[in-house]
């Protein structure tokens, strides 16, 4: 069981690493946000699930496990809303990528 917990944490560290590399390499705002989602989903959830298993099995502390689960639920609920508002706000403010996007239906439909 200990190996499962370690594997979960290592996997989430790998995804967080990939997300950070992506954030540094991606060419524009929106692509950077896509890469940041990588950190905030698998990068966080692996650590939280590993923590739940560790505190439930090795520490025998059910209270801590439940609190970690609540943390994960709140994280999952609030994170996409912030991402959506950031992307929409950036677009409305006039942020456009340097290299042209392949297709931009938002511009075609809303700006004459």
């Amino acid at each position: 069981m200990r190996y499962v917990i370690d594997a979960l944490i290592v996997i989430s560290i790998f995804f967080a690493f990939a997300g950070v590399v992506g954030m540094l390499r991606m060419p524009d705002t929106f692509c950077r946000m896509q890469s940041a989602t990588n950190i905030s989903t698998c990068g966080i959830l692996g650590v939280i699930i590993g923590g739940i298993l560790y505190s439930a099995i090795y520490l025998g502390n059910a209270e801590m496990a439940i609190k970690l689960a609540v943390m994960g639920v709140f994280y999952i609920i609030t994170n996409p809303i912030a991402g959506h508002i950031l992307a929409k706000g950036a677009y409305k403010h006039g942020v456009r990528p340097e290299n042209k996007m392949v297709v931009d239906r938002l511009e075609e439909d809303f700006e004459q």
Partner: peptide, 29 residues
């Protein structure tokens, strides 16, 4: 949902780490 999440995570991580950066961004309806 976690299965979809894992697949998409793996896909984006591969894109971010590959040397050519194979992205093709756009807004679809």
């Amino acid at each position: 949902f976690p299965w979809e999440l894992l697949k998409a995570n793996w896909d984006v991580a591969k894109r971010a780490l590959s040397p050519k950066l194979p992205i093709n961004p756009g807004i679809v309806k």
